[in-house]
């Protein structure tokens, strides 16, 4: 098996498949990370992804325009983020339950709207792979990273963007301040509410992109429960990445490459019970997290609603 794996071809295929699989996690986990950095835990990722997957698919199906599909998918995610922000920031509700409520709402609405509008599985011409000139001809790296569709590139580009915004801009400083010590940030004139709304809505939009990618970038169709629990894994990957874009990237890639590897192991007919193959990414993610050295703590104000002390 090892010999087979070391053949360049096999490895490239596995890595390329891992990159495709990592994309939805990357979008959703980066978005969730931004929200959590501002102090809001949003467990509604999975439901948001489903609803956006549907709206993006439907608009693409009806209009034939992929761009419009993406736009509507992102807006749907933003709207779900807005609901979460109203409930958890303005109403200061318990964030864990709010997120589960949002998830149920998204799960239900996606099924209902699908039933009302299409009612049967249909397909669209989704995003086609777009080779990046020059880069796609690079050995190994070209095939692994540069022969995907535009949404995949976008997901990976968003990693450094998130890093720059969070750690190199005044806005990022404010976000982190609100997540660590909202009282202090408030005293310094930062609008805790405003920042949290912004971050939760952006987080929702990113979940929306994740769902959009599933329906018009990867599967090119919409089916009920299209995420099959991906949103929950994306939340887990934020903890894996310890609230850092590069960590989230590492987690998403690790999880997805191992997943691609287990698929390949099965396809090659290597005799282990398939359940153990399917478990591989779950087990390895736990193991990798346990032995990661960094000891970053979660944002101090995470999941704590902020209430300005009445003077």
């Amino acid at each position: 098996m090892i010999n087979e794996l070391l053949k360049e071809g096999a490895l490239i295929l596995i890595l390329a498949s891992g990159v495709r699989l990592a994309t939805p996690y990357l979008f959703a986990a980066l978005g969730e990370m931004i929200g959590q950095r501002s102090g809001v835990l949003n467990l509604g990722v999975d439901g948001t992804m489903m609803l956006s997957a549907f709206t993006a698919f439907y608009v693409t199906f009806a209009s034939g325009s992929l761009a419009l599909g993406v736009l509507v998918g992102v807006l749907t995610g933003g709207l779900m983020g807005l609901i979460m922000a109203v409930v958890s920031v303005t109403m200061r509700a318990e964030q864990g339950i709010s997120g589960i409520g949002l998830h149920l709402f998204g799960l239900g609405m996606s099924n209902l709207l699908f039933r009302l509008s299409l009612g049967a599985i249909s397909t669209v011409e989704g995003f086609r792979p777009l080779s990046v000139p020059i880069l796609s001809d690079l050995p190994v790296i070209g095939a692994v990273f540069f022969r995907h569709n535009v949404l995949v590139y976008l997901a990976f580009v968003l990693v450094p963007v998130a890093w720059v915004v969070l750690f190199r801009t005044p806005l990022g400083l404010k976000i982190r301040a609100v997540g660590e010590n909202p009282q202090a940030a408030d005293t310094l004139g930062v609008s805790v509410t405003g920042i949290r709304y912004l971050c939760v809505i952006i987080g929702g939009m990113m979940s929306g992109l994740a769902g959009t990618y599933l329906s018009i970038g990867l599967n090119n169709m919409y089916v009920d429960n299209i995420t099959n629990g991906m949103g929950w894994i994306a939340v887990a990957l934020v903890y894996f990445g310890r609230w850092h874009p590069w960590g989230v990237l590492a987690g998403s890639l690790l999880f997805s490459v191992v997943n691609a590897l287990q698929i390949w192991v099965q396809v090659r007919g290597i005799a282990i019970p398939y359940e153990f193959a399917v478990m591989m990414p779950y087990v390895l993610t736990i193991v990798a997290l346990a032995f990661a050295v960094r000891r970053a703590q979660q944002p101090a104000a995470l999941s704590k609603p902020y209430e300005r002390a009445e003077a």
Binding site: G47, G101, L104, L107, G108, N111
Partner: peptide
């Protein structure tokens, strides 16, 4: 549709 059930629970 079963979706209404979940949507109402969510609400």
């Amino acid at each position: 549709s079963p979706g209404i059930v979940y949507a109402l629970q969510g609400l």
